[in-house]
Write a protein that binds this DNA or RNA. Structure first.
Length: 288
DNA sequence: GGGATTGTTTAAAT
DNA sequence: GATTTAAACAATCC
């Protein structure tokens, strides 16, 4: 749910609220939210000042004045909220970072998949997940983008979702950018003409920028650091709209599994390159 | 209670 | 051996 635009929105809001504030206390309600354990987490954060808040991929990163970084991965249902100290605590609030000016930063996660850790630069750089992330889509030019995808035989959607190929894209923005570029989600990347790859690059950047401008998407329960919902769900063309009309050609939208995830697309606007044309013809061996 | 939800890892297949 | 696919995993909701 929180993908690049949502995490970016949280980071920007959080930056205004907590930069230059000092961490006075840490309260742990669910130890599973901090894999390093409470002792290490407290040692590395108590008395430290938050110098900057930023995003990389879907990671929210708070840089501390001891060179360490507090890194939050929201996964499915994670939220980070700033509230007046002691307020608004519910059973899904797993971690409370108490600041020195009367506010708490809450880590709230209904499904407990998210996590928070504090890493020093050396550890951060060698964290396998971080070290293997692909480039930021908004900082990638068309030629580089083409090199990431052009020769690969995997389905285009699974590549978009692969954080090692390109970072920060999830199911929403994969479906929306494929629709805008007129590409079927199960098309093999290598079968796409270069112009289509360029189109995808442009549309992906476009949809990400629009979503950031709208404060992210809140089709379910996403909220930013102030508890405010985003507006981009109003602009979805295909995501979550199976059975409804394509906003472009009015064809009924369909859904298929691609890379193990539901993928909604328009059969009219997103036609397959070759395979689809002659039905189910298939070369080579075929088991009965 | 089965199925869907998510991003990521790991195992298996090509 | 590299690339790709599928299944597993976490917890919860409907």
């Amino acid at each position: 749910m929180p993908e690049l635009p949502e995490v970016e929105t949280i980071a920007r809001g959080l930056s205004d609220l907590i930069t230059k504030q000092c961490i006075r206390d840490v309260l742990v309600n669910w130890p599973g939210s901090i894999p390093q354990g409470e002792k290490v987490f407290r040692e590395r954060s108590l008395g430290r000042t938050i110098q900057a808040v930023r995003r990389r991929a879907k990671l929210l990163i708070l840089d501390l004045d001891n060179t360490a970084s507090l890194i939050v991965h929201l996964r499915m249902t994670g939220k980070v909220l700033v509230v007046p100290s002691g307020q608004c605590r519910d059973k899904h609030t797993h971690l409370v970072v108490r600041l020195d000016r009367g506010e708490d930063v809450l880590f709230n996660d209904q499904r407990k998949f998210g996590s928070c850790r504090i890493l020093f630069p050396e550890e951060f750089a060698h964290w396998p997940f971080y070290a293997t992330l692909g480039p930021e889509p908004l900082e990638t030019g068309p030629e580089e983008f083409n090199q990431l995808f052009g020769h690969r035989r995997a389905g285009i959607k699974s590549l978009l979702l692969n954080q090692r190929i390109i970072a920060g894209v999830g199911n929403i923005y994969a479906d929306e950018s494929l629709f805008r570029a007129g590409i079927h989600p199960r098309e093999r990347a290598a079968d796409l003409p270069t112009e289509k790859i360029f189109a995808l690059h442009q549309k992906l950047q476009e949809v990400l920028r629009e979503a950031i401008g709208a404060g992210g998407s809140s089709f379910s329960d996403y909220v930013n650091a102030l508890g405010k919902r985003g507006d981009f769900q109003e602009s979805f063309s295909v995501y979550g709209r199976k059975g409804l009309a394509c906003p472009c050609c009015r064809t009924v939208l369909e859904a298929e599994k691609a890379a193990g995830r539901t993928s909604t697309f328009c059969p009219g606007c997103q036609k397959r390159n070759r395979q689809g044309a002659s039905g189910t013809r298939r070369a080579g061996k075929q088991k009965i």
